[in-house]
């Protein structure tokens, strides 16, 4: 590929790449502009003026704080469950070949391959059949299901990179299973798990489709935003909340990237 890379890309290719990237990034950047607009009643562009007023107004909003608090709590717990179950699953799948292995790897893919609404309505009808009332834990139940998948994907990439001989060596040198886990396996996969956990956190913090079916009357931040999207009542506050959501999800994503970039480059050169 190196030889052909020297000839360089054609103008047409460069142009379509640039256009594609702009299409991917400009819309979200626009949010940052609108968070400071003085216009309250419409989405006027360009904004007639800029102000910091709405940051202060949003800061004083109790409902926004409550929604943010609930979302942070849900995302943390769902991510932790995701890390535990995802890691176990990846370890079992990558270490051994057994009957039903294919079925389980399909089972893990299923929650992301099927539309979110199916997951949502399935959970809801199961709750109503089992007469489980909506609570904090019903939200967690839904979120943890796709968090497992995210962590699993990250962990399995790392397990593929870690050589089985490392574990055999540890065992040969007299370590018991617990010591091998503690001193050999965990250090090897830790960053992948943390990265998976961060991505799961970002995903859960942002999830709305499954949440609408499992939250009952509780309002997470995405649910709050959805209500505003359907019936805009306080556009300036929504603009600021949207900006905050971008910033809150930005950091874990970037952090996750730095932790797993070797897996990715490895996957890419394979």
């Amino acid at each position: 590929m190196q030889s052909s890379a020297k000839t360089g890309a054609s103008i047409g290719l460069k142009f379509s790449v640039l256009a594609g990237l702009l299409f991917l990034h400009l819309p979200v950047l626009l949010i940052f502009l609108y968070a400071f607009t003085t216009e309250e009643k419409s989405y006027q562009f360009p904004p007639p003026g800029l102000t910091f007023k709405w940051l202060a107004v949003t800061w004083g909003r109790q409902d926004v704080w409550e929604a943010l608090g609930l979302s942070l709590k849900v995302a943390s717990i769902a991510a932790i469950i995701g890390v535990l179950l995802g890691a176990l699953c990846a370890a079992a799948i990558s270490r051994s070949r057994f009957f039903g292995r294919e079925v389980i790897s399909l089972l893990v893919i299923l929650p992301i391959a099927l539309p979110g609404i199916v997951t949502g309505i399935a959970l809801r009808s199961a709750f109503s059949l089992a007469e489980i009332p909506f609570s904090f834990w019903t939200i967690i139940l839904g979120h943890a299901t796709f968090c497992v998948v995210v962590v699993y994907n990250n962990a399995i990439a790392r397990f593929r990179r870690t050589h089985g001989s490392l574990i055999e060596a540890s065992m040969d040198l007299g370590a018991n299973s617990f010591q091998t886990l503690r001193y050999v396996i965990l250090p090897n996969i830790a960053t992948a798990l943390v990265a998976g956990g961060m991505l799961a956190f970002a995903l859960s913090f942002d999830e709305v489709i499954v949440t609408t079916f499992t939250s009952g009357q509780q309002t997470t931040l995405p649910i709050w935003m959805l209500e505003e999207l359907v019936r805009p009542r306080q556009r300036p506050v929504t603009n600021v909340v949207a900006m905050v959501v971008v910033l809150v999800t930005f950091l874990p994503i970037l952090g996750a990237y730095y932790l797993i970039r070797e897996d990715e480059s490895d996957r890419n050169t394979r």
């Binding site: 991917l24 979200v28 949010i31 609108y34 970002a202 942002d206 709305v208 959501v245 999800t249 930005f250």
Partner: peptide
């Protein structure tokens, strides 16, 4: 863009 908030992206397009 893959991982950033779905609702924010939809909201941006509403704007």
């Amino acid at each position: 863009p893959l991982w950033s908030s779905y609702l924010v992206k939809v909201y941006a397009w509403k704007l």
